[in-house]
Design a binder for these strands. Structure first.
Lengths: 349, 349
DNA sequence: TTGTATGCGTTATCAC
DNA sequence: GTGATAACGCATACAA
């Protein structure tokens, strides 16, 4: 079963040529150097022997490993990790790269160690990805080509992040487009994501002629926070449900957890979703948004695309290191994922 | 910034010795070969120059890359992927290995291609991990050392999977231990996981003197399925809630999604959790179990440990290829994660 | 058009 | 105890 590896030399001998000739043929450099007939003989020999070049030797010689390093701040604890990694791997694969992934486990020291190790392993470039959107006061320090995913820094290093402005636009356009006139947003204002979403949502709603009620919660964008916020929105001072005419017909939660809280509160209050209340989420959190009853309409955080774009960007950089680094991060659209928790308002029905 | 790499030769020259001597010193093979004084001189030189050995060259020479391949059937679409990967990476890191992860994206062809590619890259061993527990009719074909994670095959290849029998035991012991006398399980019987959980739960409950009501749902272990099952359990023929004495005081859902459905149904019926009904889940699904209100008590699928154990096992195999392969998969405990959805029954209160 | 010689950075063998 | 020398598998510059 474990027969000896077949080397380039073996192929060359079988074809009756020198290793150099075999190398050229197999690397497509035969034009102008090799007679087509010998080239074919070499290729045939390689095929017969089932030759596969040894990457390690190639790497040493070419000074290029075709390996990318991907270091993350915390892979374990995020429901989005898988998507980003899958996207990154996919991009790498199509250009015959492979990924070595290292989790820093929320320890900055580990990041430094990881980068050192990957450098020693001679990876061709680095992606640094955070699982939550983050501004980096200082980008990871390395002499290798670097791209940031889901985070950005003020230094001139290329970055790819979600477009929260457009997300706010999309949400507002969708809800007002459905005909909703009394619209609320439950949001937090810490961090650029919440701020951008909120501002864009507000402005775009006003453009459409509706003035949204913005209910601000604190830093904790949790189910519980959403639940309580919704409770406030949907009941009066005595704790009784407000009459239909006095409550919003649609609510946008700043993320799916908050939106889940809204659904739970509505359920508790005997409100039917989406008949009595449309609920829109954000993030398309795996196994939450599409698990609810009814399934949550939401805007997807483009994590797969983030991974794809970051790697793609990095490989472009490797191919052409002269590429200019744009001052601003590249922003990726958050597409609407329409499910069952939204509908036109009763009046518009 | 991008100063030339410092090679072993540089260190040797600086210390005034041969590269061979430098190599010995740096690899700890100086005993009996090098004078302690020259050894120290070499080490000092290396430190001053900040020398780090080139892994690629080492790999070529040692015929060992210290890289492990991890191929998964579908990384993107699972909320557990992160945990397993993090565990695997952690295990690898502590033994100075690194992981190349490839996602086959549910395509068997891709698995073959991935294994071929990883073999070409000279990884030292392979882990094959599935995101859902699976029996493999035939293990992935490779001449490399291989360990299975979260799946197993009849061929003699080492495997690590969760211990569903013990999970059933734990669930039964926990619920009966709390004092519940009328206990139900909502389960599916397709696949070994559901069967084992159900059988163990039933037997262990009976040992404790309670005969559980087993409600079988179909292949789809979804929130919706759990919702409907719970509805059946908690209402009578007319759709009205059963009186307290006629309904279970505790329900175990075969997974967290099903348990979520139970919570939703109970909420809808005006039942208070855990006062009127204890709900126990299974899997500890990230961002679902701990997002509910109240947070779900559940049994954790040990995905991190699965990753850790698989890599650890593989490395043991590499260190000592004579290790015997046990006939049965190694089974890892699913620990109870106690949160807020369970309590003693009203009568026992 | 083909083949030869050399080097990538490291380690292991074997004379000294 | 120490230090040349060869080899790992491949690719390239250059000579034939």
């Amino acid at each position: 079963m474990n027969r000896p590896r077949v080397r380039l030399l073996d192929v060359a001998m079988r074809a009756g040529v020198s290793p150099a000739a075999a190398s050229m043929a197999l690397n497509g450099r035969s034009a102008g150097n090799l007679a087509p007939t010998t080239r074919d003989r070499i290729l045939a020999a390689a095929a017969e022997l089932d030759y596969t070049p040894d990457s390690v030797a190639q790497s040493l010689r070419r000074r290029k490993t075709n390996v990318l390093g991907l270091v993350t701040d915390a892979i374990a604890s995020s429901p989005f990790a898988g998507r980003l990694l899958a996207g990154a791997m996919e991009s790498a694969r199509t250009r015959s790269y492979v990924l070595v992934i290292v989790d820093a486990n929320r320890e900055p020291d580990n990041e430094v160690i990881a980068i050192r190790e990957l450098t020693r392993r001679r990876v061709d470039g680095l992606v640094y990805a955070t699982m939550g959107l983050q501004h980096l006061p200082v980008a990871p320090h390395t002499s290798l080509p670097l791209v940031l995913a889901n985070c950005w820094s003020d230094q001139p290093v290329p970055a790819v992040i979600p477009d929260d402005d457009r997300a706010g636009d999309t949400a507002a356009a969708y809800l007002t487009g459905l005909g909703h006139q009394r619209v609320a947003m439950i949001t937090g204002l810490v961090g650029s994501a919440g701020q951008r979403r909120t501002r864009a949502f507000t402005e775009r709603s006003r453009d459409a002629g509706v003035d949204p009620l913005v209910h601000v919660i604190d830093a904790d964008w949790s189910v519980t926070a959403g639940y309580h916020a919704a409770w406030t929105l949907l009941t009066d001072d005595t704790g009784a449900p407000r009459p239909a005419a006095q409550r919003p017909t649609a609510v946008w939660g700043v993320n799916d957890r908050v939106a889940t809280g809204v659904v739970l509160a509505a359920l508790r209050l005997g409100l039917e979703i989406p008949r009595d209340l449309s609920v829109l989420g954000m993030d398309d959190q795996e196994e939450l948004a599409d698990c609810l009853v009814p399934a949550l309409t939401t805007l997807a955080l483009p994590h797969r695309e983030l991974g794809e774009a970051a790697v793609s960007r990095l490989l472009d950089l490797l191919d052409n290191s002269g590429l200019p680094v744009p001052a601003d991060p590249q922003r990726l659209e958050c597409p609407l994922v329409e499910r069952a928790s939204t509908a036109p308002p009763p009046s518009a029905g």
